[in-house]
Design a protein around this nucleic acid. Structure first.
Lengths: 286, 286
DNA sequence: AGCATCCTCTGACTGTAGTCAGAGAATGCT
DNA sequence: AGCATTCTCTGACTACAGTCAGAGGATGCT
């Protein structure tokens, strides 16, 4: 039973590995302050707001923690020239030293933990942790509808076009700014604020058909089932809009995508548009 | 790099799974109190001392947490009839209900976390977590020298003899209480207070030789490299005592043990004692 | 029987984490 | 230009976690 394995591991974790956080102790700083220092050090040029979101802290609490780092001479906080309400946090040289110290402690702690294992065991552990990491991250991805001009959507679209350009033998040119599509709905899957998958539907052909557009999965996240999940999500949305059929087009170079459509119950159909990049056409009845 | 995978997972964990602990929140009780309730519920008849060790709490702190559970009517604390300095903590019926509630919350949380995964992905995650769990537990096993009459040593010896009796075609009879062995050193590997591997060395044959005795690994822990690790540890101890050679005898039925000795650089030698159960004899130069 | 030790508990603290309300500056919108 | 909104910060708290010293009963050892 998976939940049992998860809960058992949770226990092992808090007793054994969780102690990794303890590497942040013994620095004379409270845990929260160390965590903040670590976060500032690993995301240079971050704003107070960004920190608040990533660490999920109360604004007053965070402000005080920042003041503490500042009086220790580890960080500087200056107004963001772009939007002077925001303030940007940076490490001072002393802060960099303190950050490196945290890095070192964390690394040493991790190394000490696995030191008793043989080379073979380390490989197995490495493999197991990477798998668990990917799957847990994939499970906790959040799907949300976004406007096409939302920063995440823009970023995802940019990456999608770049991928097409790299993979099509003839390259890909979106041909100028993307025209607004009335009635279209776009969905972005994000993890830690980063877009990791994207896709949308728009009305097409007739009143009971929707077309799936711009299906994209971040290259580091392939094999985690995100594509299929996004597809299911879009189908549900289309059904909720009263569509009884979805169609899509794609390029022959995108083998995994085509395989995924087939696994997900899509059937090949005849060309239904004049998209010069499209070579394969699919439909699915909902 | 394993430490990288470990540290990355650590991050994912604290942000995602770590939230399992949050299932203990929303009960109107502080986290520490819930954790204590959970511990009391999962180890019936435990003493205050046992709780203190397992949860690694200050005695004053723990005492106050226990008082809190008691005034809530969830536990009773009564003197241990065997040793009236100790006190034994038990759940009341109301406490059992509260414990079941924690169990349910924890289970629901775990189920919700993995809900977005497909069956195939769940299997992979299950497998990965079990592997990681075994290896992390194996890595954090603690080796310590013990007197042969130490409870852990007794328990390990009992299990060792039981195993021999089960595996030898002719059975095994230790022949009365074990005689004290002058100069012998025994080591127990324990995890969560349970013995998981055992072994010892004693002077033998001549001044520069030690004999390895009673090598045992808990059946649930085989394949985690504990035997080889115990062996290395014993060899180091022998070398520190000025021995230049270790010898050991074993029975032909113990295939994995024999394979391990060979992998660890042991060579077969002639019979060097009259142990009726021994069929194979090994030595290793240190 | 006497003394060291063990076990649990209370008292008296300190520091950390986190919440909530609201002030004041900067910005966006119409 | 005016007004709502955003962002960060301070003040004022509350609860929680954890430490240390020491009291007092129970036990083990010789």
């Amino acid at each position: 039973m998976l939940t049992e394995a998860l809960r058992r591991f949770n226990r092992t974790y808090t007793q054994r590995i969780g102690v990794l956080d303890e590497s942040f102790l013994g620095t004379g700083r409270p845990l929260a302050v160390s965590r903040l220092l670590f976060e500032v050090g690993s995301t240079p040029g971050t704003s107070v707001r960004g920190l608040r979101e990533r660490l999920d802290l109360d604004s007053g609490h965070l402000s005080r923690l920042l003041r503490r780092l500042e009086t220790e001479g580890l960080t500087t906080t200056t107004p963001d020239p772009v939007d002077r309400r925001r303030r940007v946090v940076e490490l001072t040289p002393a802060g960099r030293t303190a950050y490196d110290d945290l890095e070192r402690r964390s690394e040493e702690r991790a190394a000490a933990l696995v030191a008793p294992l043989t080379a073979r065991q380390r490989e197995r552990l490495d493999e197991a942790l990477r798998t668990a990491d990917l799957l847990v991250r994939a499970a906790t991805v959040r799907l949300s509808e976004v406007a096409p001009d939302h920063p995440s959507a823009q970023e995802a679209t940019r990456r999608y076009f770049a991928e097409l350009d790299a993979r099509f033998p003839e390259g890909f040119d979106p041909g100028g700014p993307v025209a607004p599509e009335p009635g279209a709905t776009y969905v972005v899957a994000s993890s830690d604020g980063e877009p990791v998958a994207y896709g949308g539907i728009r009305p097409a052909l007739d009143d009971h058909t929707a077309e799936i557009k711009r299906m994209w999965v971040h290259s580091a996240w392939r094999g985690a089932g995100l594509g299929a999940r996004m597809l299911r999500h879009l189908e549900t949305l289309a059904a909720a809009q009263g569509r009884r059929r979805v169609v899509l087009d794609t390029n022959g170079a995108l083998h995994e995508a085509i395989a995924m459509y087939e696994r997900s119950g899509y059937r090949r159909i005849e060309r239904y548009n004049d998209n010069p990049y499209a070579e394969a056409f699919f439909e699915k009845r909902l």
